[in-house]
């Protein structure tokens, strides 16, 4: 069974999810990776919600759209046809680089899901449990397939400052496929697989 999630995602829908579940997401989500996470934490969170005046419009937009919303760790390949942006390839990037920021962003914006690849660490897992959120794993490298599920590029923010891969792309997705690998009940596929493989490694290199 595939769980269909629509943004904004209610807490009950998150609590119904467990590791291993397949989901499809629809609605408006934002790409955000290294530069965007650093920016959100420095501008919005460390200032207790008092960013520089120039950053207010984006802050208000994110407060609205990320409330119950979704962040996607992705730096897409894009094309512009007749003034309209289009996603050409848009698989996930490695998520663990955002481990130092993600829990703060989940709490501050009431984020309900983070999509990426490779999984995240204990800080993010704790935030998923405390604030009712999930980590969703998309298939790394599946750039063309996922781009097909991006039905509209609504807007892009910080394009000039951050560049194409690092900008906030505001996109409408339909049926974006992913697997729950960290749930709101404290379970993480990544922690389990790491523990099992490390035990096996010890066996394989036993003197």
């Amino acid at each position: 069974m595939i769980h269909k999630l629509t943004v904004p995602i209610p807490d009950e829908a998150i609590e119904a999810l467990h590791v291993g579940d397949q989901v499809e997401i629809s609605g408006v989500i934002f790409t955000a990776r290294d530069a965007a996470h650093k920016y959100m934490v420095e501008q919005f969170i460390k200032t207790d919600g008092n960013p520089q005046e120039s950053e207010w419009p984006l802050y208000e937009l994110l407060q609205d759209k990320l409330n119950g919303g979704v962040i996607y760790h992705c730096g897409p390949v894009v094309a512009k046809d007749a003034g309209q942006w289009r996603f050409v390839a848009a698989g996930p990037t490695t998520s663990i680089r955002e481990e130092v920021y993600q829990d703060l962003v989940i709490e501050h914006f009431n984020l309900k899901a983070v999509i990426g690849k490779g999984g995240m660490g204990p800080r993010t897992l704790a935030a998923c449990q405390k604030f009712k959120a999930v980590y969703l794993h998309a298939v790394g490298g599946a750039g063309t397939l996922i781009a097909e599920r991006v039905v509209e590029v609504e807007d892009v923010h910080k394009l000039k400052e951050f560049g194409v891969p690092e900008a906030f792309w505001q996109i409408r997705v339909e049926g974006f496929p992913a697997v729950v690998t960290m749930d709101s009940h404290g379970q993480s596929v990544h922690a389990d697989v790491a523990a099992q493989s490390e035990a096996k490694l010890k066996e394989l290199v036993a003197a």
């Binding site: 992705c74 730096g75 897409p76 390949v77 050409v88 390839a89 848009a90 698989g91 298939v139 790394g140 490298g141 599946a142 750039g143 063309t144 397939l145 781009a147 097909e148």
Partner: peptide
């Protein structure tokens, strides 16, 4: 994804 990328001449991975 591999088949789609080939058919559409789009990057396999972004």
């Amino acid at each position: 994804n591999t088949e789609m990328s080939r058919a559409k001449s789009r990057p396999i991975c972004q």
